[in-house]
Amino acid sequence: MAAAAAAGAGPEMVRGQVFDVGPRYTNLSYIGEGAYGMVCSAYDNVNKVRVAIKKISPFEHQTYCQRTLREIKILLRFRHENIIGINDIIRAPTIEQMKDVYIVQDLMETDLYKLLKTQHLSNDHICYFLYQILRGLKYIHSANVLHRDLKPSNLLLNTTCDLKICDFGLARVADPDHDHTGFLTEYVATRWYRAPEIMLNSKGYTKSIDIWSVGCILAEMLSNRPIFPGKHYLDQLNHILGILGSPSQEDLNCIINLKARNYLLSLPHKNKVPWNRLFPNADSKALDLLDKMLTFNPHKRIEVEQALAHPYLEQYYDPSDEPIAEAPFKFDMELDDLPKEKLKELIFEETARFQPGYRS
């Protein structure tokens, strides 16, 4: 834990890192770190609560700039109880001085990944967590956004079992017609939660990839272990087919990539493993919904509104309290091709509203 900075004593240090967030945020305490930044909790002297502050230093890398800009653009436009918001952003007053960006968010005690390492969940908890994931996802999908990296560590939890989806750095506007060349190379989302079509096709992607990830998360809540822990690309596919069985001819016809289709045709026939054999203690309604989410063919996979209306979630289902976005989200430009200098300018502009004396 960093010592509390005395008023006016300059930035606090946390594990050798400068955290320049005073005077409003003090009493910093280390939480963890990701690929390009550290997260601390801090005391907000204005709202009198502890908050989470993520320090991001992305400006050396085009990919990190892209992810940072995506996350900020999306989260500043989203407003939903099951999606983490941005409360404040701290950065230098000029673009030349801006080396880091500090993002202030609600402090959540833990995440689903940490929880599943230590606790076996009751059916009631599984049901409530799944409902909140789908409630947040309904809003995301209504904005025409794909999260693309749903996994237990991106689901934040607090002691009252509130759940918030975080990390929109890989999110995209849904565009089933656009052929994202190089899709697989830039697709760094965790393999275990990846839909089979991501490994088999490169053309376009749809909201059904997020539903697949939610199915993987439900299976993990039922058993405290990942359902498809593939060691590499082909191993991942083999794990999936080992449980779902061989795809039907109709399902194979959806695979545009001939090499991928021929690979699947070359494999020995596998039978589907019954879900109640894998999860003998699970609620039968939970397994019915799991089956509809972990469907090989993305066109037959359940959609988020149908999933919310499934009998497993009937005690929570309330369409009048499951809000959607006001308007579909649009990125003005494809960020993939922009140089990091341009992305830095866009991050600077996007964060201006939090600067003292800002006038829109």
Rank of each mutant, 00 (worst) to 15 (best):
A2R: 11
A5Q: 05
A5P: 14
A5T: 04
A6L: 04
A7Y: 13
G8V: 00
G10H: 13
M13S: 06
V14G: 00
F19S: 01
G22I: 12
Y25R: 06
T26L: 07
S29E: 09
V39T: 07
S41C: 06
Y43P: 09
Y43R: 11
N45M: 15
V46C: 12
V49C: 12
I53P: 12
K55R: 04
E60R: 08
C65E: 11
C65K: 15
R67H: 15
T68L: 07
I72C: 14
I72H: 10
K73T: 09
R79P: 04
H80G: 10
I84P: 15
I89L: 12
I95A: 13
E96M: 15
E96F: 13
V101K: 03
Y102A: 09
Y102S: 06
I103F: 01
D106P: 15
L107G: 06
L112W: 09
L112R: 07
L112T: 11
L116V: 13
K117T: 12
T118W: 11
Q119L: 02
S122T: 14
N123M: 12
H125T: 05
Q132L: 00
G136E: 01
H141P: 01
H147I: 06
D149P: 04
L155T: 14
L157V: 11
L157A: 06
T159F: 07
T160C: 06
I165F: 00
C166D: 06
F168C: 08
L170G: 08
A171V: 03
A171E: 03
H178K: 05
L184S: 01
A189E: 01
A189N: 04
T190L: 02
R191I: 04
Y193A: 02
R194S: 00
M199E: 05
L200R: 03
N201C: 12
N201F: 09
K203C: 03
Y205I: 06
T206G: 10
K207E: 08
S208F: 07
S208V: 05
D210I: 04
S213H: 04
G215H: 01
A219P: 01
E220R: 02
M221Y: 04
L222M: 04
N224V: 07
P226Y: 05
P226H: 00
P229R: 05
P229A: 09
G230D: 00
K231R: 09
Y233N: 00
D235G: 09
Q236W: 05
I240S: 05
G242S: 06
L244V: 14
S246Q: 12
P247C: 13
P247A: 03
E250S: 14
E250R: 10
D251A: 02
N253V: 05
I255G: 12
I255N: 01
K259E: 03
N262I: 00
P268D: 13
K270M: 01
V273A: 08
N276G: 09
P280L: 05
P280Y: 08
P280V: 08
N281F: 11
A282Q: 14
K285F: 10
K285Q: 06
A286Q: 14
L287D: 04
L289A: 06
D291I: 07
D291S: 14
M293L: 01
L294E: 04
T295R: 09
I302C: 12
Q306T: 13
Q306G: 14
A307Y: 12
L308F: 14
A309C: 15
Y312M: 09
Q315F: 14
Y316M: 11
S320V: 10
S320N: 13
E322L: 14
A325Y: 15
F329P: 14
L335R: 11
D336Y: 00
D337Q: 11
D337H: 08
L338D: 12
P339K: 05
P339N: 06
K340H: 10
K342Y: 10
L343F: 13
I347Q: 03
G357L: 08
Y358P: 11
